[in-house]
Amino acid sequence: MSEAVSALAGARGSGLVELADAGVTGMITLRGDLPLLGGALESVLGLGLPGQRQVVTGQRGQVLWMSPDELLIVLPYAEAPGVAAALSAALGDAFATVAVVSDARALITVTGAQARDVLAKLMPVDFADFPVASVRRTRAAQVAAALWRESETEWKLVCFRSVASYVFEALATVAQPGGEVGLYR
């Protein structure tokens, strides 16, 4: 059996923060009217519908608010095709789109007390206004990324697969010791 590999092949980095490839991760893009999608989410995954720029976490995975008509489900890699099929079935003939995008992305975890200072070196985001369980789509250096906050010190960043090594290297570069800032204390 051919095993899927992640773009970063388990890369790790250590500096002002800990960086890690989260490995292959299941992701499903849902497009459609959010209340409609919410019904399918509830029935298939038991997950509630996130509010604007919010993340809902449950037993079987997470669901992220991506735009007024788009959600991203994050779950174990192997479960993505089955869940996508179940969601499609639950949505029936309704105008909605379910697409597995697990392989199109890379997922990087950024952990540490200085994570906000490090992320602020690449992302034009005000981290003073970024509570746990919220998500922000923005720019990481020169590419698009989505970032969400798992806890006080743990963040997840998702980017396109093709630029995974660019993003990882950029993070590792600005996380080098000596680059302490102290902006977010």
């Binding site: 604007q52 007024p68 034009p124 985001v125 789509r137």
Partner: peptide, 11 residues
């Protein structure tokens, strides 16, 4: 007005 984010022009 679609996602409620206020951000700089580069986005």
């Amino acid at each position: 007005p679609c996602c409620g984010v206020t951000a700089e022009e580069t986005e």
